[in-house]
Amino acid sequence: MTDTPPPPPTPPVATAATTPEAPATGNSEYSIDIRGLNKWYGSFHVLKDINLQVSKGERIVICGPSGSGKSTMIRCINRLEEHQEGTIIVDGVELTNDVKNIDTVRREVGMVFQHFNLFPHLTVLENCTLAPIWVRKTPKKEAIATAMQYLERVRIPEQANKYPGQLSGGQQQRVAIARSLCMNPRIMLFDEPTSALDPEMISEVLDTMIDLAETGMTMLCVTHEMGFAKQVADRVIFMDYGEIVEQAPPEEFFNNPKHDRTQLFLSQILAH
């Protein structure tokens, strides 16, 4: 089936993040509960009526063409981007302009970026202990112990006292994952964690992510690594023009896509 993107409605005047059909706050059983989410950049309608419920421990892979709004959507979940309509409830906390709620959510949600975004003036260990010490108020000794434990889990404990600039891309990205994990998040967001990496480093990062998936972490990954999607995803989401076009478990998604746009996209990325 084919559907044309609906004409973009104009952005609402008020920035209140509530819609009548969704509960204002709630003891949602979902880890992430997004309802009626709309977002505009100026007059550009970047996210359209997004509804997405993620259960605890669920692993979701998001794919779609460039500019389809994948990054924007997951960045709304930890409020790196503001939304104008709809509700986003993360672990029972609704994201509004309330700074306290935003802080609460950010403490529980880790994020890994395409370009790592490690702090270049701090050592690997300091990168990993800064937020636990200053946000979670963990005693320094304990924070270091935790950090070393996670650095071991991503298999680079020997790099702890180096600066990020001295590491390879794959090592940097694993540090970035460890840095997020040190905050003990309940949810991890990944925005194309392997697309800035040289081919021979992609698998070391994916392996780390697979390990993490096996611990039962709730994960949302924007990635075009379809092998990863097949191996760990509970659900694959396809976005195009700011909409969620299709979502399905990986076998169904890859073997039996329902939308022509999904099919086209899959044929393009599997072609090379």
Partner: peptide, 23 residues
């Protein structure tokens, strides 16, 4: 300072002043 530095600090939950002072 690249935007990513601000975003990484935000994502870790650092407040405005901590983000400025440490990062």
């Amino acid at each position: 300072i690249p935007k990513g530095q601000f975003e990484a600090a935000d994502a870790l939950g650092l407040s405005y002043w901590k983000k400025m002072i440490f990062i």
